[in-house]
């Protein structure tokens, strides 16, 4: 409960809104570029990495709700749970230092992508009759023709696109974290110290320089805003 509250300060709530807006803006612009990628979860992974698993999950879940509410992609809400898990995973990976190197970030992306493909397949199969209503359905048809059943065909289709998409997404977020000033990263508090988290303490009127030094070490963000 405590960690949950820590991830939903006014600052992180604002970041979540910006993360969702980035998902939608990039998702629609990339769609226009005609790449075989979605890149509609850069905001989710970024928020997860900066703030933590709960905030990442919220960003993913609410992004899909917003896709539905805008009418841009009304069926998105069916995948809100998968999007939430992607954000949560990004938070966990970042906390464990997987965003410290590009190789680990790429691997984390591939793992997330495979998991996302596996989790998405039952939704396509049982909610949407085995299709997603896009060009990738041709792949599903090919797998069905090769003899796979409905569920496996959708898993197979997903593993064609999701791991690559999440690999690119995680590497993009890794490079963004690299470019982001340490002060900004520290403000959100999920990334490990090695990723440049300075001391975050708060004291009121310590008696002198010595008291300040000890207070620096002892104080945790205790009196943050809600």
């Amino acid at each position: 409960m405590n960690s949950l509250r820590k991830e939903f300060t006014t600052l992180s709530i604002t970041l979540i809104a910006v993360g969702i807006a980035l998902n939608l803006a990039l998702g629609t612009v990339v769609l226009r570029l005609g790449l075989p990628l979605y890149l509609d979860s850069i905001g989710t992974v970024l928020v997860g990495a900066l703030v933590g698993p709960w905030a990442g999950a919220a960003t993913g879940f609410l992004s899909n709700l917003v896709w539905t509410l805008t009418g841009l992609f009304p069926q998105a809400f069916a995948w809100a749970g998968v999007a939430a898990i992607i954000g949560a995973l990004a938070g966990v990976f970042a906390r464990s230092g997987w965003f410290n190197s590009v190789g680990k970030a790429a691997l984390a992306g591939i793992i997330t992508g495979v998991l996302s493909a596996i989790l998405s397949a039952p939704i396509a199969t049982y909610v949407f009759g085995g299709v997603v209503g896009a060009g990738t359905d041709a792949l599903v048809a090919a797998f069905r023709a090769a003899g796979l059943d409905a569920l496996l065909s959708n898993v197979a289709q997903g593993t064609f696109s999701d791991p690559l998409d999440k690999l690119v997404t995680f590497v993009v977020v890794w490079s963004l974290l690299l470019a982001l000033p340490a002060r900004e990263k520290a403000r959100f508090g999920n990334l490990p110290v090695s990723a440049g988290r300075p001391l975050a303490g708060k004291t009121r009127r310590p008696a002198g320089k010595a008291a300040k030094k000890t207070a620096k070490k002892a104080a945790k963000k205790s009196t943050r805003r809600r």
Partner: peptide, 10 residues
């Protein structure tokens, strides 16, 4: 707030 703001700023 999050939902409405995201819809307006994207």
């Amino acid at each position: 707030y999050v939902v409405l703001t995201a819809i307006q700023i994207f």
